[in-house]
Design a protein around this nucleic acid. Structure first.
Lengths: 229, 229
DNA sequence: ACCTGAACACCGTTCAAGT
DNA sequence: ACCTGAACACCGTTCAAGT
């Protein structure tokens, strides 16, 4: 959001940066830091350049533009998902670990997740993770087509959950938000929303631990996916 | 994304709009049309004003700013989810219908979904839908806490699925994208991604029907959620 | 090849003014 | 009360120029 006018008279006129101060890796590192610390709103070519100590246009020697950086950030983060060591004895447990790894990555880098969902797929995301999930699903006994569908369902549930919880987290950052949400829930007209009104205590406590909620749902989803094989 | 310089010498100087041409409803209608037709990138106060035939600042008499409009849009769409008539005999089937209604809404208004996931929750979204889901889950025999968790899981899966499919849809809009994706899949090194490489035909066909994929996963998730009650 | 400032066409929003 | 234009502080990116 734009900022109200202010008197910032003159910025110090940057001295020329030495050659090769910049490279794609350094740029992506800075981008991720910026994104994690200040969120997508603050992720600006100008802010990125300032962090790197160069003029905004210097970045364009290494990336075609902001979109390309966004894609590269998403790509890079996806490649850092920690995969459990393959033991092979319990593919279902291993599968659960992979999903948790993806969920953890997304909640640790909420703005990367936002980026990922905002930009269109190039179809080559997270190949290592996907391959591992497919291997494990096949090891669990799923037929070929079902394994593919199951992996998509797991990713969808994971992305949705991460998004849900970062959205909540962001909302709860505001001062007194928790109290206001609580009050709003309690003020619900019971004749219009009977189920909602009667479940207020459960709703309140379910919202408090996003990770526990994710695991609860994951276990049920896995049960549904692997049932009867 | 900014547009390269062009020579658009002078825009016709708008004549003053009559009083009360604007009201919140008209503004939201225009916003939704704009969003559905041109996407979030094109959703601009200035574009919105032009669509309404007023000066940009006229809108600020009815909303505090763009964020408030975004929230109102999301709110309004969520309220239009079609709920099935309550018959009560088969709460599980009804539950399925509610989920499909939410999914349909999101895929029909992709940019509204994007809005919803981008802005923090105010906690009062979709109260009618949530109340209905909770009622049905309780009718299916779930204990109170489980009903709450199950409703969250269903929403998370649904949001994640809708996001996934709109992301794909957007990517596929580009010329020849389908062919390129196919080629990329086939070019995967089998020694590095054995499972992926061996499942190429299944991957290709799974990506073609997003709605079928959603229903497949939904049925498994519901099975897992309602198992053993 | 890589980095620079100035300029362009946008953006949301403040302000003071019209009706 | 509701609508207006002008102006401000941003934004991504093009351009032509420096080293």
């Amino acid at each position: 959001m734009p900022v109200p006018p202010s008197a910032q008279p003159l910025r110090t006129p940057r001295r020329r940066a030495p050659r090769n101060t910049l490279n794609p890796d350094r740029i992506l590192d800075a981008a991720i830091t910026l994104l994690d610390r200040d969120g997508t709103e603050a992720f600006t070519m100008r802010a990125l350049a300032e962090r790197l100590g160069v003029a905004p246009m210097a970045i364009y020697s290494h990336f075609r533009g902001k979109d390309e950086i966004s894609d590269a950030v998403a790509q890079r983060l996806l490649d850092t998902v920690e995969l459990p060591g393959a033991c092979g004895a319990h593919p279902d447990r291993e599968l659960r670990e992979v999903c948790l790894g993806v969920y953890r990555l997304f909640t640790e880098h909420p703005s990367a997740l936002q980026l990922l969902t905002t930009r269109p797929t190039r179809g080559d995301d997270a190949l290592a993770v996907i391959d591992r999930m497919l291997t494990l699903l096949r090891a669990c006994g799923l037929p070929r087509q079902d394994a593919v569908r199951a992996h998509v369902a797991l990713m969808q549930y994971t992305v949705g959950s991460a998004l849900w919880s970062t959205r909540r987290t962001r909302a709860m950052c505001e001062e007194g938000a928790r109290e206001r949400a609580k009050a709003k829930l309690r003020a619900l007209p019971p004749e219009r929303y009977p189920a909602l009104a009667s479940l207020v205590p459960e709703l309140l406590c379910a919202q408090d631990d996003a990770a526990a909620q994710y695991e609860w749902g994951l276990d049920r989803l896995l049960r549904g996916l692997l049932a009867g094989v």
